[in-house]
């Protein structure tokens, strides 16, 4: 009976862009949770930064009516992911819970998946990751440290999902709505990031995605993402669903 079993969920995220204040708390939480190496000056200069979630700035409208906007972007965990079929070793595949998972051990580092991704949310480890001595003891023991030569990306904090479902299974109950949280969603001060189960029609995220403001990023690629965005409410103009999708 227990729906804490593997495969009973379809994890997804609803991002309410209207609530996002661009504070970058999610970014910091993600770096800390997932043992992401520090983006040093050298890495930034050589365009080799790794940030599983990022807050992107973009412009809406043409000058002089342009408005600066920002939007958090992470792996969209597409149902129809362009990164998956191109991997020669099945290092990335879609699991039964709707996650696009990356198997570090299998990855040989062809970087083909990253080329296929329209959201550019896949990152390659050009060097062996290093941390300053002071941070060595702060690493998360639940998360693998990725060696050089492999791809990595947002995992929807799969270690947290596993921990929650393990606890629920051992207690013989279902996972409650909102019990499993990613690092970014639990760090978000305005609840712009909401994580949950799309399979449960009564979950918070399932209800949120019914909102008429909902859209998915870059829908022209037909990727069918598991991350749903709710459009920014603009007092000056009426914004229809999906209008954000196409600008750059």
């Amino acid at each position: 009976m227990t729906t804490a079993e593997f495969g009973a969920h379809n994890w997804g995220m609803v991002v309410d862009v209207d609530k996002c204040i661009g504070c970058n708390a999610c970014v910091i939480a993600c770096q800390a949770e997932n043992n992401i190496p520090i983006n040093t000056q050298d890495r930034v200069e050589r365009a080799r930064t790794i940030s599983w979630i990022r807050v992107e700035r973009y412009w809406e409208g043409d000058f002089p009516d342009a408005k600066a906007r920002f939007i958090p972007i992470m792996c969209q965990h597409c149902e129809n992911a362009p990164c998956e079929p191109v991997c020669p070793v099945y290092a990335t595949y879609h699991n039964a819970e709707g996650l696009n998972v990356q198997v570090y051990n299998r990855c040989v580092g062809t970087r083909y998946c990253a080329n296929g991704c329209p959201y550019i949310v896949r990152f390659f480890n050009y060097w062996e990751p290093v941390w300053p001595e002071s941070l060595r003891n702060h690493l998360n023991p639940d998360v693998t440290i990725r060696s050089r030569g492999i791809m990595e990306k947002c995992s929807f904090c799969v270690q947290r999902i596993r921990r929650t479902s393990r606890t629920a299974r051992s207690e013989g109950r279902e996972i409650a709505d909102g019990e499993a949280q990613t690092a970014c969603s639990s760090a978000c001060p305005t609840s712009a990031l909401n994580f949950g189960n799309f399979n449960d029609p009564n979950s918070k995220v399932s209800k949120m995605k019914e909102d008429k403001r909902h859209y998915t990023l870059l829908d022209q690629f037909g990727t069918d993402p598991n991350v749903i965005y709710l459009a920014k409410i603009d007092a000056d103009k009426k914004v229809g669903a999906g209008e954000h999708a196409s600008h750059g």
């Binding site: 129809n80 362009p82 079929p85 829908d219 022209q220 690629f221 037909g222």
Partner: peptide, 9 residues
């Protein structure tokens, strides 16, 4: 067939 973008489909 492989591209699978909305347009391709």
């Amino acid at each position: 067939w492989y591209g699978r973008s909305a347009n391709d489909i």
